[in-house]
């Protein structure tokens, strides 16, 4: 029994990602002369994972259901831009950021519902639909509503939330780094997503639909409704994550999300999710995001110019997907 469990474990992509992550950390730790595992670097990496990690999780749940969402950055951008604009105009959120977050969630949910309505009702290819809605939503944000960049006028409570921290650490040169409180959001989201995916029938329905949609319908799932709920939830979360990002960056820039999907989706797939649906786990996704964040944050530590960051990100992903593709090919034989 133990042996079969081990065998099953070694078949999973998550397992390899985890090992690579550990190996990479060890390697960089040695090359950089112990700088990676210094507290300052660690808290920076954790901070870097907050927003991308949460985006990756919503991307993951869509992908498990067999969908491919290109529109979540556009939804997010609309939601946080609209929410901050309203807050600034109304003078809200000077002391409590709650209203802003609720607005962003609301806007996100509305746009998500639009996605969900089209995808569930017309049984269309999700990648193409979300390409259309992405373009449309971007047009809404920057065309129809002409939302502006908000930097210095950002409500104080957003700024405060972004700047709040659990503890501060100093490195040998006396540089200060802090562990942002927003890490809580990521932790909660990891917990909730894994609970939903593993322990609720809704989560199991997503796996079932991703595995075989026709069978899921025959088994008695209301596939239409589940898909609709999924896209509403994803939209709402995209709005929420966007707000977290606004707080952390201490500015709201409508354009900031453009192309985000191209950074997140590959990472999710690196973490073991299948673009054909039905496969993927929270653990693998977070490991993959961790891997990429570590790579981009440790460039300087190992003496590589930070302009190479994108290249190494791409390389890590290319190698990752190549290995899993070759492995899958071998297994088929």
């Amino acid at each position: 029994m133990n042996k079969t469990a081990w065998k099953r474990l070694t078949k999973r992509t998550e397992f390899y990602i985890f090992i690579v992550l550990i190996a990479l950390i060890a390697g960089i730790q040695i090359v950089s002369g112990g700088q990676l595992l210094e507290p300052t670097t660690l808290v920076t990496i954790l901070r870097g994972m907050v927003v991308d990690g949460m985006f990756a999780l919503i991307c993951l749940i869509v992908m498990i259901s067999g969908g491919f969402d290109l529109s979540f950055p556009a939804i997010s951008a609309f939601a946080y831009s609209a929410a901050t604009t309203i807050c600034v105009n109304q003078g809200w959120c000077e002391t409590n950021p709650l209203a802003g977050f609720l607005l962003a969630i609301l806007f996100g949910a509305i746009l998500g519902a639009f996605n969900g309505w089209i995808i569930a009702n017309f049984k269309l290819n999700t990648m193409i639909v979300t390409l259309g809605t992405q373009t449309f939503f971007t047009g809404l944000t920057m065309g129809l509503f002409q939302m502006k960049e908000i930097t210095s006028t950002l409500p104080a409570s957003f700024r405060a939330l972004g700047e709040s921290y659990f503890f501060e650490v100093y490195n040998s040169q006396g540089q200060r780094s802090t562990l942002t409180t927003s890490i809580v959001f990521l932790i909660i989201m990891i917990a909730v997503t894994s609970f939903v995916l593993r322990k609720t029938m809704f989560g199991r329905a997503l796996y079932a639909i991703g595995g075989n949609e026709v069978s899921a319908e025959r088994a008695g799932y209301n596939v239409k409704r589940i898909k609709f709920i999924l896209y509403v939830a994803v939209g709402a979360l995209a709005g929420f994550i966007g707000m977290v990002r606004v707080c952390l960056a201490r500015q709201s820039i409508p354009k900031a999300m453009v192309g985000k999907e191209m950074a997140i989706i590959p990472a999710v797939i690196l973490g073991g999710a299948s673009i054909f649906g039905g496969e993927g786990s929270v653990f693998g996704t977070i490991c993959a995001i961790g891997l990429i964040t570590v790579v981009s944050n440790s460039m300087l530590l190992v003496g590589i110019d930070s302009y190479w960051q994108n290249f190494f990100n791409g390389l890590v992903i290319l190698i990752g997907i190549t290995i899993s593709a070759v492995q899958a090919k071998r297994q088929r034989r």
Partner: peptide
């Protein structure tokens, strides 16, 4: 960006 708005809408209508 209005062009983007119309393109997106057009694609969705066509779909």
């Amino acid at each position: 960006y209005y062009a983007s708005l119309i393109w997106g809408a057009l694609l969705l209508i066509v779909l």
